[in-house]
Design a protein around this nucleic acid. Structure first.
Length: 180
DNA sequence: GCTATGATCATA
DNA sequence: ATGATCATAGCA
């Protein structure tokens, strides 16, 4: 299996979100298939962390693509994102659900759950996904995938934008069809 | 410095 | 509907 090159990430958040479906998320020996993602745009997206400019937390969103953006939320959960767009342009993809392949304990459907199962914390914030222990790989035998689209989950702003992507029919998708 | 709030999840 | 539980951001 081949590690995705940085050029894969240097595209729009929407393209990266779709492209990430079916790819393999690897942390050490643990591997899982990405089955659900959400795109967050750098500009014109009130729901994105980057919407109000660069802060110490969001600076990685404006940096080079192919890096991890991990943040802590609700006092309990970590969320894993992948930085997209060329350097200088904000934009990221939230990994919402993965399908466990090996070396994984616990549920992985839902952003808080998968980071818990993979052992991801803010320690991985800003790490390079093209090298190091946390990577995204392209499977050798890419199965045919039907991509479903819906509005994003768990946000207040820009609820109507169709920026959530998932593998149609995959049982590990956190929410089968259209949310509220 | 202080405080409101949130890209969640499990439970009732 | 609510609670667990805390980093971040915005303001003073």
């Amino acid at each position: 299996m081949r590690t995705l090159p940085r050029s894969f990430y240097a595209r729009s958040a929407v393209e990266v979100a779709r492209g990430l479906l079916g790819k393999i998320l690897q942390h050490g020996d643990a591997r899982a298939r990405i089955v659900e993602t959400e795109a967050y745009l750098g500009t014109g997206d009130a729901a994105a962390h980057s919407a109000r400019g660069i802060t110490p937390r969001t600076r990685v969103l404006f940096g080079p693509p192919g890096h991890a953006y991990v943040y802590f939320i609700y006092g309990m959960h970590y969320c894993l994102n992948v930085v997209a767009e060329p350097e200088g342009v904000a934009g990221c993809v939230l990994i919402r659900a993965v399908e466990p392949l090996n070396g994984l304990a616990g549920a992985t459907e839902g952003p808080g759950k998968l980071t818990s199962a993979l052992g991801l914390t803010t320690r991985f914030d800003g790490t390079d996904l093209t090298r190091g222990p946390l990577r995204v790989l392209a499977p050798n035998d890419a199965p045919a995938i039907e991509v479903g689209v819906s509005s994003r989950i768990g946000i207040r702003a820009a609820v109507d934008l169709p920026l959530r992507f998932f593998i149609e029919g995959n049982p590990f998708v956190s929410r089968p069809s259209k949310p509220r």
